[in-house]
Simulated scan of single mutants.
Amino acid sequence: MTDGGTFYDQLARVSDFDQLTQGDRFTPLPQDWWLGTADIVNSTGLIAEGRYKTVNMVGAAVISAMMNALEGSAFPFVFGGDGAGFAVPPRDEAAARDALARCARWAQEEFAIEMRVALVPVADARRAGHDVRVARFEVSRGVDYAMFDGGGLNWAETRMKAGDYAVEPAARGALPDLTGLSCRWSNMTARNGTILSILVLPEPDADADEVARVYDRIVSLTENLDRGGHPAPASGPGSDWPPEGAALEAHATHGTGSLGSARRKALFESFVAWLLIRTGIRLGGFDARRYARVVGENADFRKRDDGLKMTLDCNPATRDQIEDVLSKAGADGLIRYGIAAQDQAMMTCIVPSIMTDDHVHFIDGAAGGYALAASRMKGRSV
């Protein structure tokens, strides 16, 4: 029975992240929906080559392509560093399949990166013993992000990596619409010690209430950090010129046009923004300093993605406390976890318009982040 695509629109927003440690804040997806998954093959090798900013951009491209394919209609999605996951109603299955195929082709042609993509029925995840539940976390007045629980999205990703449900790359030259995808902000240096990327997943047979208590303890510890561990300062991320990501943005947005022209456009626009932020001058009603502040407010530095993911600006004492909680919970057979520490965080953005507050910003560790944490998983079933 289809909901006509209204399910996600009607879902209530949750404004306190600590409420999302509990499973009762999540609502099951309709049975006839689809799960989209994407990940980059050999992301750890690309990290070793110093290409993690590219990895992040390619991973976020899937979400950008879907936003444009659905023409702004809200849908649940989550960014994973070296990939992404999302869900769509049956009416949008064809559009999702096309966007995934185009992203896989684009990653190959622009960056020589292999991207796996798949589209999986929610019903198949449930038949395999996993649920797919979602919540909407309102990070600011302008933006909310989907949170996933139940294990179904992780199961879909595992099946994708095994070769099931694959969406083949589109024909050569069939590129996605990545309008709005950018990475112009400077990396954010840790203010309190280190940028800590944390990935926590429940063990398959762990008691859900016990796992929720582990999540709750970790989230409670972050409340002692400045701004809850948010890597961006209250004024927003910094902006240097020229931005390191200008060339990457040009690859994302040039389409069939000139790569050089797209790069010059990114450099010009970023220069104007840099100048306005430095001077405080407003241009045509655009307040660059306010925009930078809203960028930070809108960022997704913590999320539920069939587990708990956080990229924190963390002091040494809190880091030790978090690691103690994780180590004990891992030894008790409740969770698997991975941690990556680095000096900086980075941001990848999707900006439909600088004049509205609905732009989204994905934060990850700049030296490997979630992908590196995933490669370092500890726990009974690892």
Rank of each mutant, 00 (worst) to 15 (best):
A262F: 00
V272T: 10
V41H: 05
D364S: 11
R172M: 14
R290D: 14
D358K: 09
E114G: 13
C103A: 12
L267Q: 11
S197L: 06
L326W: 08
E109R: 11
P90Y: 01
P352Y: 06
S258V: 04
E269T: 07
I40W: 02
A156Q: 05
Y8I: 01
V41K: 08
E71Q: 14
W33V: 00
N298E: 07
A61V: 02
D18A: 14
S375P: 06
P169K: 11
E203P: 07
A345E: 03
D320N: 11
G80I: 00
F79C: 11
K265S: 11
H254L: 05
V134W: 00
E223P: 06
Q22K: 14
V58S: 01
F148G: 01
Q22I: 02
G307A: 10
G368I: 04
V62I: 13
F79G: 02
K265C: 07
D3G: 08
I63E: 08
S261W: 08
G330R: 06
R159P: 10
H130R: 13
I277D: 09
A125K: 02
E223R: 14
G365C: 07
G260T: 08
P89K: 04
M160G: 02
G257P: 04
M57D: 01
E297C: 12
T356V: 12
T2K: 10
R51H: 12
L100K: 05
K53D: 14
P121N: 11
E93Q: 15
A367V: 01
R51L: 15
P243N: 05
V14P: 08
A374T: 06
N187L: 09
H359C: 13
G257T: 03
E210M: 09
R213H: 12
N224G: 12
A65G: 11
G193D: 10
L11G: 04
S15D: 15
I281S: 12
Q321F: 05
A299L: 14
K161L: 07
S140N: 10
F7A: 09
A135W: 01
T27M: 11
K303Y: 02
L199P: 02
A366P: 04
A12E: 12
Y165V: 04
A234R: 14
V139A: 08
A170H: 05
M355D: 15
L29P: 00
L29H: 01
Y8C: 03
A288G: 12
Y8M: 02
F301G: 03
D39C: 05
V211Q: 02
G152W: 00
G379W: 01
A146V: 07
C314Q: 04
A292W: 12
D207I: 06
E157F: 09
N154K: 09
D124N: 11
R105Y: 03
R91E: 15
Q19I: 09
E223L: 13
Y8E: 00
R264C: 06
T318V: 15
A367Q: 14
A262I: 00
S270K: 04
L326A: 08
F137N: 00
R302G: 00
R213S: 13
I40P: 03
H130T: 04
T348W: 01
V214N: 05
A48Q: 14
P90E: 03
N187Y: 07
L326T: 06
D24C: 11
L153F: 06
